[in-house]
Design a protein around this nucleic acid. Sequence first.
DNA 1: TTTCGATTACGGCAATAGACGATTGACGCT
DNA 2: AGCGTCAATCGTCTATTGCCGTAATCGAAA
Lengths: 227, 227
Amino acid sequence: MRDQVREKIAGEICLSDEPGKTIRKWREQFKISQQELSRHLGVSPSVISDYEAGRRKSPGVVTVRKIVDAFLEIDEKTGSNILKQYSLAAKTDSIISIKEFAVEVLASDLVSKIQGENLTPAMSLEKHIHGYTVIDSVRAITSLSSFDYLKIYGWSSQRALIFTGVRFGRSPMIAIRAHPLKPALVVYQKPEQVDELAIRLAELEGIPLVRTQLAVAELVDNLQSLG
Amino acid sequence: MRDQVREKIAGEICLSDEPGKTIRKWREQFKISQQELSRHLGVSPSVISDYEAGRRKSPGVVTVRKIVDAFLEIDEKTGSNILKQYSLAAKTDSIISIKEFAVEVLASDLVSKIQGENLTPAMSLEKHIHGYTVIDSVRAITSLSSFDYLKIYGWSSQRALIFTGVRFGRSPMIAIRAHPLKPALVVYQKPEQVDELAIRLAELEGIPLVRTQLAVAELVDNLQSLG
DNA sequence: TTTCGATTACGGCAATAGACGATTGACGCT
DNA sequence: AGCGTCAATCGTCTATTGCCGTAATCGAAA
C-alpha cells in the first residue's frame, strides 16, 4: 500500500499542469510544514516555497522523488497515518455478551446449542469458532463506528456474531459486507422475519446465516456453557 | 481508467532510479518505435534514444508528461489495445464515475456545482475534497465487497461519495459507518426520500449529507468540470 | 507594539536538461 | 551491393533547474 500511495502521489505531481500546487496539496494533506520538509530534504526553506509557487515549471523526476519520499518518511516518523487518525474512543453498550472460547467449538455444535435453524443450507457449518459476540443491533446502528467492529471481533475474527433486535436482517449484513473482517457465522436472535436480501448477502460472503428463537438470557447462558 | 493508467506510468517513470529504462519499458509494452514516438512528439529520434539510454538523469515532469501522453495517444490512434490490456482495476458496474482532483476543491463549491441541498446543516462544508466517486447504490448492495470499497475511495478518503438510486438512504450510511475509511462528504442523487436515521448516522459520523436532484449525466458532467 | 516562526519573492550561479545534427552500426529486403 | 528503417553515441548550444542567501511579508502570540 505504501508503494501504491507513493506512486500515486508521484504520478499526480508529474502529470499536473501545475506540479507546484500539487506538491503543496499533498504536503498539506500530510500536515507537514515547508520548514519541516526543507529540513528533511536538507535544503533551504525558500526552495520548497519556490517549488510550490511554481517557479520551476518542470521539476526533475529526482527532485519529485525526493519530495514524495520525504512526505512518506516524515509521516511514518510521526506515526500519524490515515488509519491511525481514527479515534480510539469506543462505545460498548451495544455488546451484550462477548467471550473467547478456551477450546474452539464447531459451528454446528454452537448452532445446536442455541437451537438454531440454518437459513443458508449451502453454507457449511463445519467451521471452527473461537468466540462469540452478542450485539444489540438496534443500538449498534447508531452507536458503533468502524473501529468498534474491531472490539466486536475481539481477538479473533473466527467468531460468531449474534444480532438481537433484528427486524429484517439487512443492516447487519450490509455492515458485515462493508467491513474488511468477516465472521465465521452470523446468528439472528428472534428476528421479525429474515429478508431474502440478507440471506443473499450472507451467501455472497460465504457466511452461514442462522436464526434462533431463544430469548436473549437463555441464548447467552447456552453460549457461555460452550468451550 | 485511462487516467489511472496514465498516472501509473508517470508515477513509475518518476520514481524509477533509472527513468530512462522505465520509459523504454513502457514504450516497448505499447509496441511503439523510437521513430514513431519522436515523430509524435515532434523531436529528433536521437532525443528519445538519449532519454532511454539514461543520458538525462532527471528528466523534467513536463517531458515525462509529454512522453506518457504520447504513449496513450498513439495507442488510442490504433485502437487502444494496450490501454485496454493494462487497465489497473476492472471498473465495477457499481462505479459510475470516479476522479481525483488535481487541486483540492472546497466541499461547499462541489455542493454548489451539483445544486445540492445540505441535509445536515450542523455539518460544516468547509472541507477540502480531493476526489469523488459516483456509485450506483442498488448495484453496490449486492456486488460490492469490502475490497471494492477501497476502489471506491480511490487514493484519498478525503472525497465525496455520491450515491444514485437511493430510496431512504439507510444502506449507504450503514456501510459508511462500518468501513474504516470515511468520506468527507456524502451526496444522495434524487433519493425517493431521506430517512431520518440516515441523517442521524451522518451527523454521528460528522459527515455532511447532501441531496441533489440533478440527473446522473448532468451531475457527472458538473463534477468532472471541477478541479 | 514587538517578537517570532513560517512563508514568500527574487537575484545569482553552477550544473544539467532539452534538443539538434552528424556519424555509426545492425538488420532485413531487393 | 545498395537502400531504408531503427537505434545508438556524442559534441554542441541555449534554456532551465536546483539551490543558496537575503530581505520582505504575514499571522499569531506575548
